[in-house]
């Protein structure tokens, strides 16, 4: 009996070591921290392996506040220097248009705010407008190249197809300047995969199944990148048995008609304005359908793409590491 009492002095350090070992094994698993918030009218999650989360959250809140003013204010109210991010985003959209309008026509127009407001698809009382309402709203659209101060009085801005991607660009710039290691910022339709994971493995991003969104279409494996997704399967409303999706055509004023159901565009994180560009491209390709998709892939723009059509085909551009989810009803197709 005596021996145990006597040995306690030597046993104690052993117990302490054991405890430390356990604590250690907990830490080395390097579990990322996730923070969530609402910004840009969407659910946002920030996952980080270091302490850079707070700075990202503050930045997103500030950007979201600035962009949310477009809901209430006319376009001409954004002239001047009080809205530097809106002006910068508009300029990127203009550049994007001059580079890609050849493929897409003018499929996106950030002066369509009055049209978006008329339909109110994301609001409490969405409704199908009558012809008079529609033509009145369409008449407020103008060329994106018009300076804000010269836009027609009733014109309103809507950066729904670019603001979230633009926010990803801004987060990336901030993370670059603070030497952050790794962060995953998801703003719903646009995502920034920043830096490198602690274990050095590639990022893996899941594309949702557009027919049953609780299931997966497949997984993209990639190094640091911007990824944006567009589809009509989540935000829509029904009236008299007809489904109206939230992406509106600036030409007809009606929801776009497309034979695609999900489009994901990916660009390496080094791509200049890659967030804004992937956001715009995802919407433009989705709106254009397979004929536009074909031309986009043929032009070899440097942007990767994964697109699913309504006949359960999935098209993947060269250079994208995409794995179809086992048990998916979709099949990979090369005949575009």
């Amino acid at each position: 009996m005596n021996i145990f009492k006597f040995k306690l002095k030597r046993t104690f350090p052993v117990f302490v070591s054991c405890l430390m070992l356990c604590a250690c094994s907990n830490q080395t698993s390097s579990k990322p921290q996730t923070k969530e918030m609402f910004a840009f009218d969407t659910y946002v999650s920030i996952t980080s392996y270091d302490s850079s989360v707070d700075g990202t959250q503050e930045l997103l809140n500030a950007l979201s506040r600035e962009f949310s003013e477009t809901y209430n204010k006319k376009a001409s109210g954004f002239a001047g220097e009080n809205y530097p991010n809106i002006l910068e985003c508009a300029n990127i959209c203009r550049e994007w248009g001059s580079r890609f309008d050849g493929i897409f026509g003018e499929s996106i127009n950030f002066t369509c705010g009055a049209l978006t407001k008329l339909w109110g698809i994301s609001g409490e009382n969405p409704h199908v407008p009558d012809e008079n309402e529609l033509s009145a709203a369409l008449s407020t659209l103008t060329s994106e190249d018009t300076p804000f101060s010269l836009m027609p009085e009733e014109t309103m801005l809507d950066f729904g197809a670019s603001a979230k991607g633009f926010a990803c660009d801004k987060v990336k710039t901030q993370l670059d300047s603070t030497n952050a290691d790794c962060q995953i910022v998801s703003l719903g339709s646009s995502t920034l995969l920043y830096g490198q994971k602690p274990d050095g493995s590639k990022f893996r991003a899941v594309v949702k199944d557009p027919i049953s969104p609780s299931s997966y279409l497949g997984t993209i494996a990639t190094d640091a990148a911007f990824i944006s997704t567009s589809g009509g399967y989540e935000r829509y409303f029904e009236e008299n048995g007809v489904k109206y999706e939230h992406i509106l055509s600036p030409k007809t004023g009606m929801p776009v008609e497309t034979d695609l159901c999900s489009v994901t565009v990916i660009a390496p994180a080094e791509t200049e304005n890659g967030g804004t560009y992937t956001d715009l491209l995802a919407t433009a390709v989705y709106s254009g359908g397979t004929s536009v998709l074909r031309e986009f892939i043929a032009q070899d723009t440097g942007f990767g793409i994964v697109a699913a059509d309504k006949n359960n085909n999935v098209y993947v551009s060269a250079g994208v590491d995409f794995t179809l989810y086992e048990g998916s009803e979709f099949t990979l197709s090369e005949n575009l």
């Binding site: 698993s29 969530e36 609402f38 009218d41 969407t42 659910y43 999650s45 996952t47 409490e124 995953i184 998801s186 719903g188 339709s189 995502t191 995969l193 994971k197 990022f203 893996r204 991003a205 899941v206 594309v207 949702k208 997966y216 997984t219 990824i227 997704t229 989540e234 994901t264």
Partner: peptide, 29 residues
């Protein structure tokens, strides 16, 4: 994640079970 945007509510699973899908970093919406 279940999200109710109008009510600013989100629901997700947390705990060590989260490691079972640790191969995946993000779900695109």
């Amino acid at each position: 994640t279940i999200v109710c945007l109008p009510n600013r509510i989100s629901v997700r699973l947390i705990g060590d079970k989260a490691n079972t899908d640790s191969n995946i970093d993000v779900v695109l919406n």
